[in-house]
Design a protein around this nucleic acid. Structure first.
Lengths: 159, 159
DNA sequence: ATCATTGCAAACTGTTTGCATCAAG
DNA sequence: CTTGATGCAAACAGTTTGCAATGAT
């Protein structure tokens, strides 16, 4: 990973400047963090992660940059099921796989007959047929490998 | 609707007391609002709607009651795609149909082969096979009949 | 020299809490 | 009369903004 960091930095600089923004330290470090980890950080978590990786950012600068980066389409803002605002480097449409134990969220695609799913009315008098339908966004819920292992640990020792 | 209001009130009272809460005016009025409209109100919107329907609730009382009602399972709290906390009388698992113009959200079921959908990894080294998969939650995005009409109005007059 | 960016502090929004008052069983 | 509910005001968390200092072109 460290091997192509310098090259990454050049690439990032280009992508940032293409959008008419100055490629400052702060912006490069934010994008690096997101690209390297594929995680969906909250601003608070990002602040912490950036602090650990070297000199910290001011909270105002972080928010200002998250705003610029997302309004120029370099990152995507969304609100997780926990209600916290999070950011994703993956600006392509995609789905989410969410661990119901630890809350970890992974970007995924989908295989299967997505196109044949249709909404079905739950209340009388609701006219779904007149809606013009578009994209479907999926949330897969499950338990991640790490949390399965943790559950297994908790059961076996006593057996 | 007004016909079985009194009966509704009795029914609500019973449901509230079953959960060990006192069936106060405030609680009945909150549940009535949600049951009658099937809407997904934010606290702010609820305050406004309740004000219009008669004597207003204090904001603290509203929040306190939304907390009690959702922690006892009488209503469900969730965070909409706009990031606002919303409440739903439908505590059964269900999906959402969302108008991408006005943001209106309708509870729906689904028809089609939901069970044959599988998440697909988007990054190398991501091991989805070891996840234990559970429920899938769908968000159908589209344009509601009202917004389609509004769009049509905007186009035709000039033609 | 100019204009974007930074970062402090203050403002603001949505939500929760402490507490005195009030009302229901 | 005891316990839960109400509602004001204060506290709080997350986010945005005004503005002076700084940095990049």
């Amino acid at each position: 990973m460290g091997v192509f960091m310098a090259c990454e930095r050049e690439h990032l600089t280009k992508r940032i400047e293409e959008r008419g923004l100055r490629a400052t330290e702060a912006r490069c470090r934010i994008l690096e963090l997101l690209h390297e980890t594929h995680q969906h950080y909250t601003p608070e978590e990002m602040l912490e992660a950036l602090r650990e990786r070297g000199r910290p950012l001011s909270i105002a600068t972080l928010y200002q940059n998250l705003q610029k980066l997302s309004e120029t389409g370099l990152i995507a803002r969304f609100v997780g099921p926990d209600g916290h605002t999070r950011y994703d480097v993956n600006t392509q449409p995609h789905h989410h796989l969410i661990c119901k134990i630890c809350g970890r969220m992974v970007d995924v695609g989908v295989t299967g007959p997505l196109g044949s799913l249709r909404p079905r009315a739950l209340f009388e008098g609701e006219d779904l047929d007149s809606w013009r339908l578009g994209e479907i966004h999926l949330e897969f819920h499950g338990v991640c490998p790490e949390c399965q292992a943790r559950q297994a640990d908790r059961e076996k020792p006593t057996a």
